[in-house]
Nucleic acid binder design. Structure first.
Lengths: 119, 119
DNA sequence: TACTTTTATACAAGTACTTACCCCAAAGTA
DNA sequence: TACTTTGGGGTAAGTACTTGTATAAAAGTA
C-alpha cells in the first residue's frame, strides 16, 4: 500500500502548515488528484466499488482502492461490506464527507464556467 | 523544472477524464498540495515573491517558483516584474484566478469546521 | 573590499505517486 | 470441468514531486 514515512521532512512540513492555514488542512485531507473526484461521485449517493470504477474509467483499481482506504482512515468515506460471494461492497460519505458538498459544488461550478470561457 | 512528458499514460488519462467530470477538470488545474494554498494567500491581494515565501514557510523556493510558473501557464496567476536590482516581482490573481474565491472559501470553511469537530 | 538583498536557475538525490501485471476466494453458470 | 463475477492483495518498475545545495546579477551598505 505504499507506506508513507511518518517522520519525513515532507510530512512534518505538511502538518506544521496545517495548523495555521485552513486550506492547507483541507489539502492534507483531500489533496492529490483523485480524492476530490471520488468524493464528487459519492456525493450523488452511495456506490458499489464496481460502479465507482465505471464512473471513473481512467483510474486504476489500485489507485481507487488506495484512495478509498485513505478516505476511510480520514473518516470521510464509509465502507459497508456484505459477506456474500461474490462480494458486495458499498461506499458512502460519512457526515464529515457530506459536509464537503459545498466545496465540491464550488469546484464543479468553477470548472464548468472555466471550460466555457476557454472554448 | 522537472519536465512532464506530454504523452505519458498518466497525462492522457487525466485529460480524458477532464472532459466528462468538472471536478476532474479543476483538479487538473489546481490539484496537488501547494497550488490551492498559494492561490489562497494571493486571494487577499497581490503579494511579492518574498511575501509568499514568508506566508508559506513550509514550502521550498523551488516548489514555490515551480507552482507559480504552472499557475501562470494556466492563466490563474499574473506575474509583474519591475526591472530593478534587486528584483521586484509581484504575483496576483487573474480574472479566472479570482473566480476561484468561492472554492477556496468553501475549503477554508470546511477546514475550520472539521478542525473544531475533531478537537 | 566583502557582505546583503531579491528573485530566481541548475543539478543531484531522495521520496511518493501511479501504472502494469499477476494472483485469489467461492458461488453460479455453460 | 471450465469460465465468470466482485472486490480486492502483491510486487516491480516507471514517472513525478520535493528537498538540498550551489550559483548568479547589480546595487546598496558596513
Amino acid at each position: 500500500m505504499t507506506a508513507i514515512k511518518e517522520s519525513s521532512t515532507r510530512n512534518f512540513n505538511k502538518q506544521v502548515s496545517a495548523i495555521s492555514c485552513p486550506v492547507t488542512y483541507v489539502m492534507n485531507k483531500i489533496g492529490g488528484h483523485w480524492k476530490p473526484i471520488i468524493l464528487y461521485h459519492l456525493s450523488n449517493g452511495p456506490k458499489r466499488y464496481s460502479e465507482l470504477k465505471r464512473a471513473i474509467p481512467e483510474i486504476t483499481e489500485k489507485m481507487l482502492i488506495q484512495h478509498l482506504k485513505q478516505l476511510q482512515e480520514d473518516d470521510l468515506v464509509l465502507r459497508t461490506a456484505e459477506p456474500v460471494v461474490p462480494p458486495f461492497v458499498t461506499y458512502s460519505l460519512t457526515r464529515a464527507g457530506a459536509k464537503l458538498q459545498p466545496v465540491l459544488n464550488a469546484m464543479a461550478v468553477w470548472g464548468l464556467d472555466d471550460m466555457k470561457e476557454r472554448r
